[in-house]
Design a protein around this nucleic acid. Structure first.
Length: 287
DNA sequence: CATCCACCGGAACTTAGGGTTC
DNA sequence: GAACCCTAAGTTCCGGTGGATG
């Protein structure tokens, strides 16, 4: 995944996607019912940049539009995401952290009577609870832009009502930039004549490390111990992992819990599982 | 082919904790 | 301060899966 900083301000080689998204959002400005868009494609393909670019451009031409960008990787519960939206609208003054019921937050959104709002849910597949999407769909003042790199997973996690609404949304697919395009972009951005391919490739490991350390920060002590157990060997079956974990700590959690941790580690790309059924093994992700 | 076993992961529940409301 | 609302993490229970074994 390329760092945010490597993504150009100017949007190169993405005319088709820009136009498609603009077409979906423009009716909102004219006071017509909002349509929604779903942006899909691998990370690093520029989905987030395009969304920000199009929304930003829209706000320049039509003054009376609000916009909110929610990173669902950070705001992964319904509550946190709702809170984030209200925050963006400046409506959180007396909403207190973590203790206000969902309904209260929703009431506030329903009561909103300002200019139309474009809500972008970035990395929406990270959302635990698809309800939020439904909530937003019901509210006429809000246009929704969903961004995901895993459409399958997103759809699987949603209930039928949301899914059918999603089918009517405009889907815009992004492909990964190829090296020529990236070289072009880098040249454009730095004003340099040519940027060697190796410069771009050199940026990738750094970006990976950053993502990795962000993931590590979110682990607690015992989860890190499980990771260490895996680091000390190459490939262990679950049974062995658990035994070593039990031996290593004072007051061990249950197997099921450790299984959840492994799942979490896998989700963060820190470990990988090989094989299936009884002879599955886990190991630390290489590189 | 039937059965067994370890593993997988969903669901419902418990517990602890932070906060509000009356 | 008691009753309440929420979240987060962990536990218990359990049906499903798939390779191994007889």
């Amino acid at each position: 995944m390329l760092r945010e900083a490597f993504v150009p301000n100017d949007v190169v080689h993405r005319d088709g996607e820009v136009d498609a998204l603009s077409a979906v959002l423009e009716p909102v400005v004219a006071g017509e019912p909002p349509e929604s868009a779903l942006l899909t494609g691998p990370s690093g393909a520029g989905k987030t940049t395009i969304a920000k670019f199009v929304v930003g451009r829209l706000r320049e031409t039509a003054l009376d539009v609000e916009s909110i960008h929610v990173n669902c990787w950070q705001s992964y519960t319904r509550f946190k995401a709702l809170y984030r939206i209200l925050e963006g609208l400046g409506r959180t003054i007396d909403v207190h952290r973590q203790s206000t019921p969902h309904d209260e937050l929703l009431d506030r959104l329903e009561a909103y009577d300002g200019p139309p709002v474009i809500v972008t849910l970035d990395e929406v597949d990270q959302l635990e609870d698809g309800h939020l999407i439904y909530d937003l769909y019901r509210l006429p003042a809000f246009a929704v832009v969903l961004i995901t790199n895993d459409e399958e997973e997103l759809l699987a996690g949603l209930d039928e009502r949301v899914r059918s609404r999603l089918h009517t949304a405009e889907t815009i697919h992004f492909d990964r930039y190829d090296v020529d395009e990236l070289t072009d972009i880098m040249a454009d951005r730095d004003g340099a004549d040519a940027i060697a391919e190796s410069h771009i490739e050199a940026a990738i490991p750094e970006a990976r490390r950053e993502v990795r350390s962000r993931a590590l920060d979110s682990l607690h002590k015992e989860q890190r111990q499980v990771l260490e157990i895996l680091q000390d060997s190459d490939g262990l079956p679950p049974r062995e992992i658990y035994d070593r974990y039990v031996a290593a700590v004072e007051d061990p959690r249950t197997k099921r819990t450790v299984r959840s941790w492994l799942q979490k580690l896998a989700q963060y790309n820190l470990v990988e599982a090989d094989g299936s059924g009884p002879d599955r093994t886990y190991r630390v992700t290489s590189s």
